[in-house]
Simulated scan of single mutants.
Amino acid sequence: MKIKNIQKVAGRMNIGDPFIFGAYHYDLYPEGNGKFGPKASLEGHNLGNDFDNNLPWRMYHGRSIPGFPFHPHRGFEIITIVEEGYADHFDSKGSKGRYGEGDVQLMSAGSGVLHGEMFPLIHEDKPNHLRLFQIWMNLPAASKMTEPQYKMLWHEQIPIAKPTGDVRIKVILGEYEGVKSLGSLPYSWAKDPNHRVGVALITIDAGASYTIKASSASLNRFLFYYEGNAAIKIEEQSIDAGYLLDLQGGEDIVIKNITNGDAKLLLLEGEPINEPVAAYGPFVMNTEQELEESFREYRRTQFGGWPWGQEEAALVHAKDAGRFASYHFGKEIDKP
C-alpha cells in the first residue's frame, strides 16, 4: 500500500522521524483593536491556554494579543511557514523580526534559546486571517548542543518549481523538479542532501495532476491536504481537505485535483535520524538524563535570560514596522 495511514488534522499533525511535531493554525481573526488584539469579545476563550478548535480563532497562550509569549526550547529545529497573516519574533540571542504573507522562518534552538512568537492583528479595517504551519525537526545528537541559529526565507526569494503550467511547488527545503531551496541552517539534518529532507507547498490547479517521485524505501513522507473546496484523489483514493497522509517514500505518488478550484498541500519528507528520543514540553534530547539536565540548566540560567520587555505588548513591533529581521541586537538587518 502506498498510503500507510490517513488522519484528520485538528491543529496537531501526527508526523515522525526526522520530524518531532507539527501544528497547523488557521484562525479567522477579526479586525484589530488598535492594540494588536481582536476587536471582539474574548468571552469563551480560555485565556493563557486557548486551543479550542470549535472556535473560529484562538488566543493560544496570549491574553490580549494572540500568540506564544516567550518560552524555552532546546535540541531541535523549528520551521515556521506563515502563508497568511503575520508573526512577530523575539529571541534571547538578540534577534527579532516580523514575517508573513508567505515567508518562512528557520530557527535552531540548539543548546537553548528563549523565543516569543506573537500574531499581531495589524489591520483595523479588515479581518486578520492567519494561516501558519510550525514543524519541529529533530537535531541529531552531534548537533543538539550547537549555537542557536535563526534565518529568514522571504517569500519573494523562495524558489518555485513549475513542472507544468498548472502545478507550482514552493521549495522551502530540499530539491524538487530540479529546483533547489535557498538552503538550510548550518547544523540542520537537512544540510546533508543524503538525508533527503524536503519541505514544500504544492498548489495544483483544477483538473491537473502531479506525481511525487519515488525517493527511498526508508524515507518518511507526509502529505497534508490543507486547502481545497472538495475531495481530491491520491492514488485513486478520495481525500478531503484537512487530512494528513503517511506515504511510502520509495513509491511514486499520484495526486489528482478533481475539484473546480486549487488544491493546496504541504509535503514533509526525510530520512529518519534513527536515534533515541527523550522529549518533554519544549526540550528534545536523546536520553532522560539529558532531558533532566536541560531542565536543571534552564532553571539555573534561563538560557541567558530574556533581554526584551516582559509584557505581551513588548513582544510585538510597531504597526508600520514592515517585514524585517534584526540579528545581534540590531547589528545586522535583513529585509525582503
Rank of each mutant, 00 (worst) to 15 (best):
V316N: 08
P127F: 14
F76P: 01
K151Q: 06
P72F: 08
S95N: 15
G75F: 09
K4N: 11
A109R: 02
V113N: 05
E332G: 04
G183H: 05
F295K: 13
I169F: 04
I172A: 03
P56A: 11
P272E: 12
S294N: 09
H123V: 11
N49M: 07
E77A: 04
D252G: 06
K4L: 13
M118A: 11
V82W: 00
P163R: 13
H328F: 14
D125Y: 05
Y99I: 05
I78P: 00
G22R: 09
L247N: 05
P282V: 05
F222K: 14
N229P: 05
F19E: 01
V104H: 09
E117Q: 10
N286I: 07
N128V: 10
H89C: 05
A241E: 11
P276A: 11
F133C: 03
N138Q: 10
A321E: 15
K191M: 04
Q149M: 07
T146S: 06
R300V: 00
L291V: 06
G85W: 12
G281Q: 14
Y150I: 06
L173D: 03
Q134I: 03
E227N: 15
I122W: 05
A141C: 05
E156H: 14
L267E: 05
D192R: 07
G165T: 03
L185M: 04
M285T: 12
K2G: 04
E117K: 12
E124R: 14
V197P: 01
N260S: 12
Q302S: 12
M137V: 01
G48Q: 02
F295H: 13
L291R: 10
S188F: 02
I6V: 15
Y29K: 04
W308A: 00
P163C: 03
Y176L: 12
D246C: 12
M137C: 00
L315M: 15
Y280A: 02
E236K: 15
Y327K: 11
P307Y: 14
Q248F: 11
F283N: 00
G116T: 08
F222G: 09
S238D: 13
V277Q: 09
D240W: 14
G67A: 10
S108L: 08
G34S: 06
I160R: 15
